[in-house]
Design a protein around this nucleic acid. Sequence first.
DNA 1: CGCGCTCGTGACCGGGCTGTTACCAAGTCT
DNA 2: AGACTTGGTAACAGCCCGGTCACGAGCGCG
Lengths: 235, 235
Amino acid sequence: MPTTEESAPRLLVVDDEPNIRELLSVSLRFSGFEVVAAATGRDALESAERDPPDLVVLDVMLPDLDGFQVARRLRESRQVPILFLTARDALQDKVAGLTLGGDDYVTKPFSLEEVVARIRSVLRRTRGDTPSAARYRVGDLELNEDAHEVRRGGRLIELSPTEYKLLRYLMLNSGRVLSKAQILDRVWNYDFAGQHGIVESYVSFLRHKLESQGSRMIYTVRGLGYILREPHEGD
Amino acid sequence: MPTTEESAPRLLVVDDEPNIRELLSVSLRFSGFEVVAAATGRDALESAERDPPDLVVLDVMLPDLDGFQVARRLRESRQVPILFLTARDALQDKVAGLTLGGDDYVTKPFSLEEVVARIRSVLRRTRGDTPSAARYRVGDLELNEDAHEVRRGGRLIELSPTEYKLLRYLMLNSGRVLSKAQILDRVWNYDFAGQHGIVESYVSFLRHKLESQGSRMIYTVRGLGYILREPHEGD
DNA sequence: CGCGCTCGTGACCGGGCTGTTACCAAGTCT
DNA sequence: AGACTTGGTAACAGCCCGGTCACGAGCGCG
């Protein structure tokens, strides 16, 4: 029985690679979740029994049991939504069949923005809070998660996938300065080794599309990063 | 906001294969039903007595009692509609005989779209509320579930079974982006392990038939999937 | 038995997205 | 004011992704 209480959702993160496990734990905790981690399928099952999570983030490649077995065992005792992590190329066919119940999956390497967005989406659907309400708004700028649409002053704005992820991250943190390093970590895949110049490029793209017929929304904070906010009187 | 639901219909799912039982439970729950599962005929009868369901999804091949016996016993106490699950080749005629009362059946392997549609159909008929009103509409596109007809702007459009299932799924989720994995899971049979290229093919077919004399309705969301919606001002 | 329809796969093609580089503008320090 | 640093934008090439076509298998129907 999913708790309707206001406390942070509890997540169980299951991955055998320490780096990935750590990466996920830290940043999900930072995103406001309560996180417990496990390295093996057995540990995961044990942990889930002791302290039932609201959602499980589950790597399908585990040393002892495979992810599907773990999923089934998890559900024998209690209904719990699962976000699967899987390699891009492997198991394509098996992965199909995972999104059935409201579960979802993300391919490795992922971006943290992606993972967090999917977790929120699954939890939203599972908890049954108004089965279609994922909208964010900053000033006259609005983002609809379900339809994957962005509008400014009602006017539709077409964005590429990366542009969309970047904007979502900015909107979820509107009024807060985000460094290029933070943006790179969250929006791009964790194994991305490129220059941070790409953030500037994509900010530029977004400005073009968002601000061509309106006021400025993405402000540069020199030496620090970027901030999305409504205009002040001054600017 | 308080969900306006007058309590979701309660289903009893009876199947001895854990995978199928799990598959059905999870996805029917996700489709908005309240689900109780049972692995054997005896468990099913016991569960039904304790907590009478609105409809029973019943595999005809069970280890202890066969589905027909279960059906008969179920009805000794109370009239309840049944959706039978059966192998494609076996017992076609026997099952057919049972569907007279408003029951229905689906052959294994099924697609979830099929199962959900049949359940809704049976419940609609059984409950008698709004007799024969299963119409979905998006813009000038309408789908009549009873007549199995699709029209755009009043003009009849002939669709193959797969095309129809795909369109129904898109229409039921209009305004929401659906990934190819989701589509594959819901529209195609659960044991289908093909590439997702087939989704593209069928979307292509649908576009030909739906959009040949009208505006675009199925939009591609790059990197994500497809969305069915009315045209925006822009496009 | 064969015709035709439908389903599913593989291949090719085109376009858009991505990420880099280079150059220019603006800001900052001395 | 000059030099150096930092950010903005345009241009470009590679590539991945999706659309469509065409072919083959399976099946039902005549």
